[in-house]
Design a protein around this nucleic acid. Structure first.
Lengths: 113, 113
DNA sequence: CTATATACCTAATAATTCTATGTATATTGT
DNA sequence: ACAATATACATAGAATTATTAGGTATATAG
């Protein structure tokens, strides 16, 4: 069923990588940005996000660095590298294939077979 | 993250219900039809399908009956009822919302926030 | 007569996500 | 002053979901 799984999880990893493509971000910020940009549809839990960020870092597709902020406690920023960009590209293609297949079943694709 | 989960699984249950909307089908047939109609993208495993059919039946959204076939062993056909039609409608709407949210992140939706 | 295709099923495992909890700091309301 | 809320990171355990691997059984093709 899954197109490819190696070290990626469902649809969440591609979302994270996509956000990091534009700018370096820290975990808490990713959660909020996802919620706002998806019109409240995505509500990624911290228990989902942080372990995934750690996995992506272990896999060598993102890198992290600490930054002190003016307010609150310090933030751990994540930065995508070239390996991450490749993975994003591949994962985005996978999403396109998957969603096209879904639409071909849920749409009128059934009549063609 | 999940829009609704009650007794439905990821994207697979909505696919099954959609196929059963058109005609009564038996398990093995569902697997093949999914593969063909999705251009080989979906390759649902029997270990995924059969337990899910049983769950859907327990939940009262589909019903089953046995039929002898001309060749091979007998087949267990599944039929969607009105409760199943409601669920299909709801699940299809969920897919639309989810895929729209995905596209809003993966597309150019990031620039609007 | 063996391999393949058809056809069903389940148990054990793997993979994925959530819930719950913990730490710590700063701000806002009362 | 004090409690609640928001920010910010993190992990363990539970729950969910899907796959792997095995089993049963029948019919056909080589």
């Amino acid at each position: 069923m899954k197109i490819d799984k190696e070290l990626m999880k469902g649809s969440t990893a591609v979302l994270i990588l996509k956000l990091l493509e534009r700018e370096d971000m820290y975990g808490y910020m990713i959660v909020q940005k996802l919620r706002v940009c998806s019109d409240e549809i995505f509500d990624m839990k911290e228990g989902t996000l942080y372990p995934m960020l750690h996995n992506l870092e272990k896999a060598g597709v993102i890198e992290s660095y600490w930054c002190d902020s003016d307010e609150g406690r310090r933030r751990k920023y994540y930065k995508m590298n070239s390996k991450g960009k490749e993975m994003l590209k591949r994962k985005q293609e996978e999403w396109n294939i998957f969603s096209k297949a879904m639409d071909s079943i849920l749409g009128d694709g059934l009549n063609e077979h």
